[in-house]
Amino acid sequence: MTITNPDSSSKADLLHIINTGNGFKVVSGPDVKSGGSTYVFNQWKKIVNNRYEIPMVDIDGILTTESGLKQLTKKQHAELEELYKQYPN
């Protein structure tokens, strides 16, 4: 089962509750981002540069769809390409 993390100070927006057969285990899920292109892009940059271990879901497809990428400025596109080179995974 996946639930919304009730801890507002946590970096993970979702929690996965897994029945291991010997009890339950709670595992952090990704950070879910939505909103304007600048907000999503800046959040992704912050995660990539400072907290690479935190997965992020771009729920609106700003960074993962052609229509979303069109919302970025030329400067943001250049930064995005540079970050792709620095962090290819």
Results as ranks from 00 to 15, higher is better:
Thr2Leu: 10
Thr2Cys: 02
Thr2Ile: 08
Ile3Trp: 04
Ile3Cys: 03
Thr4Ala: 03
Pro6Glu: 01
Pro6His: 03
Asp7Ala: 04
Asp7Trp: 02
Ser8Gly: 03
Ser8Pro: 03
Ser9Thr: 10
Ser10Met: 09
Ala12Trp: 09
Ala12Arg: 04
Ala12Thr: 06
Leu14Thr: 05
Leu15Asn: 07
Leu15Gly: 10
His16Asp: 13
Asn22Cys: 08
Asn22Phe: 15
Phe24Thr: 11
Phe24Ala: 14
Val26Gly: 13
Val26Met: 15
Val26Leu: 12
Val27Cys: 14
Pro30Phe: 03
Pro30Thr: 01
Val32Glu: 04
Lys33Pro: 08
Lys33His: 10
Ser34Thr: 11
Gly35His: 09
Ser37Pro: 15
Thr38Gln: 11
Tyr39Ile: 04
Val40Thr: 04
Phe41Gln: 08
Phe41Asn: 04
Phe41Trp: 11
Phe41His: 11
Trp44Pro: 00
Lys45Tyr: 02
Lys45Trp: 04
Lys45Ser: 05
Lys45Cys: 09
Lys45Glu: 08
Lys46Pro: 02
Lys46Gly: 06
Ile47Pro: 00
Ile47Val: 12
Ile47Gln: 13
Val48Thr: 11
Asn50Ser: 11
Asn50Arg: 10
Arg51Phe: 09
Glu53Cys: 02
Glu53Gln: 14
Glu53Gly: 05
Ile54Phe: 14
Ile54Trp: 12
Pro55Gln: 14
Pro55Ser: 12
Pro55Glu: 11
Met56Phe: 08
Met56Asn: 06
Asp58Gly: 02
Asp58Val: 00
Ile59Phe: 15
Gly61Met: 00
Gly61Phe: 00
Ile62Asp: 02
Leu63Gln: 01
Leu63Gly: 00
Leu63Ser: 01
Leu63His: 00
Leu63Glu: 00
Thr64Met: 05
Thr64His: 14
Ser67Gln: 15
Gly68Ala: 13
Gly68Arg: 12
Leu69Tyr: 03
Leu69Gln: 15
Leu69Ser: 03
Leu69His: 05
Gln71His: 11
Leu72Pro: 05
Leu72Asn: 07
Thr73Tyr: 05
Lys74Asn: 11
Lys75Gln: 14
Gln76Ala: 10
Gln76Val: 02
Gln76Ser: 07
His77Tyr: 09
Ala78Gln: 13
Glu79Met: 08
Leu80Asp: 06
Glu81Arg: 06
Glu81His: 01
Glu82Pro: 02
Glu82Arg: 08
Leu83Asp: 09
Leu83Ser: 03
Tyr84Asn: 07
Lys85Gln: 07
Gln86Ala: 07
Tyr87Asn: 11
Tyr87Leu: 01
Pro88Ala: 02
Asn89Tyr: 08
